[in-house]
């Protein structure tokens, strides 16, 4: 199959970028979207053109490294699927495909489709962890956790931190990501200890990074490759309100 691509090319963080047209020929429908870009890049390299830069790592949908806004949707139109797991058979022969970076002020472009998602790492450093000071591994089942809480925490923990929620949000807000981290830990006894401090620290870091404010459009949930629910945003709002009232 053949497709026409319009891809965002930008030399570096400071350069002005633009959409450029590429033709991808003789593709297999079983290729992943990233493999298709690999083919295009091979072709560009033989022509002596700078290949298209994009983020990727595991290529099996679990690491959160791949990104790309494909035809206006982060990770493309396939529901609950990362770009690396998106197959060319989800497109039609002769399709025109727009490929753009995950855009937000908090995600500065490094080159072409590669953006710096370090803001999310700094949010994790601010509070996306449980402080364990010392000691060996605790005995299994020493801390009882209900099935319901453990399932809910696990649903939130499914977040791979790819940033699709930010890219999808009309306000470039990181609320779904941050809410997943806050909720994941707030449902578990190990995380409850620092829950109040965590939500304050993490929200403050989120604001500092220049993400937008959540206005409940729900685009994030629709774009999330791990189907993180906006119920976690409601949970984080509760956690935040409790911490603001109780800490004073």
């Amino acid at each position: 199959m053949n497709v026409t691509l319009y891809i965002w090319r930008q030399k570096n963080a400071h350069a002005k970028g633009k959409m450029e047209k590429y033709e991808a020929r003789d593709l297999s429908p079983n290729m992943s979207f990233l493999e298709m870009l690999d083919v295009v890049n091979e072709d560009l390299i033989t022509q002596g053109v700078e290949p298209i830069h994009f983020d990727h790592d595991c290529r099996e949908g679990i690491c959160g490294a791949c990104s790309l806004v494909i035809n206006g949707r982060p990770h493309g139109k396939q529901h609950a699927t990362t770009t690396c797991e998106l197959r060319m058979r989800h497109f039609k022969d002769g399709d025109t495909i727009y490929v753009e970076p995950f855009r937000a002020k908090a995600f500065p472009i490094v080159k072409d489709l590669t953006v710096d998602r370090g803001a999310m790492d700094r949010i994790m450093q601010a509070g996306g962890f449980v402080s364990v000071n010392t000691g060996g591994m605790p005995d299994a089942n020493a801390i009882p956790i209900s099935k319901k809480d453990s399932d809910t925490a696990m649903d939130a923990a499914a977040c791979i931190g790819c940033g699709a929620c930010v890219a999808a949000c009309p306000n470039a807000s990181a609320m779904l990501f941050v809410a997943a981290k806050v909720s994941h830990l707030a449902y578990l006894p190990q995380g409850k200890v620092e829950a109040k401090k965590r939500v304050q620290a993490i929200v403050s870091q989120m604001d500092k990074e220049g993400f937008g404010n959540c206005t409940n459009h729900l685009e994030c949930e629709a774009a999330c490759p791990k189907e993180i629910s906006v119920k976690f945003i409601a949970k984080m709002n509760r956690e935040y309100m409790r911490s603001s009232v109780v800490s004073k």
Binding site: M19, N71, R73, K77, L218, E219
Partner: peptide, 10 residues
Amino acid sequence: RNVRVHNIES
């Protein structure tokens, strides 16, 4: 802003 924006839920 992106050239293409496809809103789903909003």
